[in-house]
């Protein structure tokens, strides 16, 4: 079957005003990261997204690592979560694609509002602060609603992509890399005596 045309989100406000490499076309309420703003859209070495632009791909990858950073177990991008999200969206229904891109655009605008810089240029703490604003810690209404819906959508994709990856399976969940012969143990305690 043929791939549906890639939809474009509508109703973009400030993002459409940002030409490639443009940095300061809007008024910034706060400017803590201006130096970093000069960085053009980061790209991930060796990865050509199917669905995202290189810049969108870089943003999604960065946000994925804010949600599941490297700790004693690998990070989201080490498990190639960004590639899974791109792959899944590349074959999704048009409205699902649009919803994701719309949410991403909203967050990119919000980054400009809050930090006066493009999302991919923010340091992880700033990206984290942005996500905290829209995270599921709070109930959201009004202007943050779009962002909050995007957070949930992105987080579900990151978690699914991570734990169904080979790295997620082996290193985060401690399961063997390939299926092997297992023995069923079951309850060995007797009724009512479980630890």
């Amino acid at each position: 079957m043929t791939k549906p045309p890639k939809p474009q989100p509508t109703g973009l406000s400030r993002r459409s005003m940002l030409g490639a490499g443009a940095t300061a076309a809007v008024a910034f309420p706060v400017l803590p990261a201006l130096a970093a703003v000069k960085t053009p859209a980061a790209v991930i070495d060796g990865w050509t997204p199917k669905f995202f632009t290189a810049q969108q791909g870089a943003v999604v990858a960065a946000l994925s690592d804010v949600i599941l950073p490297k700790t004693s177990t690998p990070s989201a991008t080490e498990a190639l979560v960004h590639e899974y999200i791109d792959e899944a969206l590349s074959v999704a229904e048009a409205d699902e694609q649009l919803e994701f891109l719309g949410g991403l655009a909203w967050l990119e605008d919000h980054a400009i509002d809050r930090f006066g810089a493009r999302l991919e240029a923010l340091v992880p703490d700033q990206q984290s602060a942005l996500l905290m604003e829209i995270s599921d810690h709070h109930d959201h209404a009004g202007r943050l609603k779009t962002g909050a819906a995007f957070f949930v959508d992105l987080k579900q994709r990151v978690l699914f992509g991570y734990y169904t990856s080979k790295i997620g399976r082996t290193e985060a969940l401690g399961k063997p890399a390939a299926v092997k012969r297992e023995r069923l143990v079951g309850c060995t305690h007797g009724s009512g005596h479980h630890p």
Binding site: V66, I67, P69, T71, T73, L131, S135, H137, K155
Partner: peptide, 8 residues
């Protein structure tokens, strides 16, 4: 709910 290192 949440995200980040402790969450993970």
């Amino acid at each position: 709910k949440g995200f980040g290192a402790a969450f993970k």
